[in-house]
């Protein structure tokens, strides 16, 4: 018999602490597969965020660093500028990247820092216990918006890909999802491109991945997948928002 799938070498053979149905495990595996397939594992350095995936530094087989909340792109910048031969990725959640770390996100993109950012958008704060995220949908309840996100009080969700697409320095931006197996496969393709871009020296690449947080949405994982399909996709449409390789919008 032939084994169809194998655990990527870049992911350590340890049990992950994530909740049942959490998307982090899927995306961790995809990132590790990219490092393996692009043969960059021996020079990869990952930046773990603050949030549930703070423990990413215990799961990836490459050198890892864990820093302050939201500062992943700044830390990645410091590593990449000091050791340009390294393949540096910053793995971040929505509170980390789009709230407290928005400045670092925007400016690392504006500088076109040659790094790869993996952005998990699950519309909620995970580790701290289900508070409202910058990506929480209008009307979506959270522990700090128990009656649902009210735009009069909490404003509107942030679409990070759309926002960054206005920056010349952002070279590749794609939003994908992991709520179905088919979308997982597409996410892998996007991540691989985001890493290939760094290898090719093309500059800032980010993949935003819509993902599940069943514990804090207080729904079953399969219902969380449904939530993404029905509620998140209309607000966060999937697709490529920027590809410096492709002809610019409005061009011939």
């Amino acid at each position: 018999m032939l084994q169809v799938n194998r655990r990527p070498k870049s992911l350590l053979d340890v049990k992950m602490h994530y909740c049942p149905g959490c998307g982090h495990g899927i995306v961790h595996r995809l990132v590790a597969e990219c490092l393996d397939e692009l043969e960059v594992a021996s020079r990869a350095v990952g930046v773990a965020p603050v949030g549930c995936s703070v423990f990413a530094d215990h799961y990836f087989a490459c050198d890892m660093i864990q820093g302050a909340h939201g500062r992943g792109p700044a830390i990645a910048t410091g590593i990449k500028r000091s050791k340009p031969e390294c393949i540096v990725f910053s793995y971040q959640g929505d509170g980390d990247l789009a709230s407290i770390g928005m400045a670092e996100t925007v400016h690392s993109a504006a500088r076109s820092e040659n790094i790869t950012v993996v952005f998990i958008n699950n519309s909620i704060y995970g580790m701290t216990g289900g508070q409202m995220a910058p990506t929480t949908l209008i009307g979506q309840p959270s522990t700090t918006s128990p009656k649902g996100r009210d735009v009069k009080v909490n404003g509107y969700p942030i679409r990070v890909c759309e926002l960054l697409s206005q920056l010349d320095g952002a070279r590749y931006l794609e939003r994908t999802s992991v709520h179905t197996a088919a979308h997982v496969i597409k996410t892998k393709k996007a991540l691989k491109k985001a890493f290939q871009n760094q290898i090719d020296g093309k500059g800032f690449s980010m993949v935003e991945v819509l993902s599940m947080c069943p514990t804090n949405l207080a729904i079953a994982p399969k219902d969380n997948a449904k939530f993404i399909a029905e509620k998140m996709l209309p607000v966060y449409p999937l697709g490529v928002y920027k590809d410096a390789d492709a002809p610019a919008a409005g061009g011939k």
């Binding site: 169809v4 149905g21 998307g23 982090h24 495990g25 899927i26 197996a181």
Partner: peptide, 10 residues
């Protein structure tokens, strides 16, 4: 292998 694709825990 679609099951393995979506399995978060490998």
């Amino acid at each position: 292998a679609l099951c393995a694709q979506i399995c978060p825990d490998l």
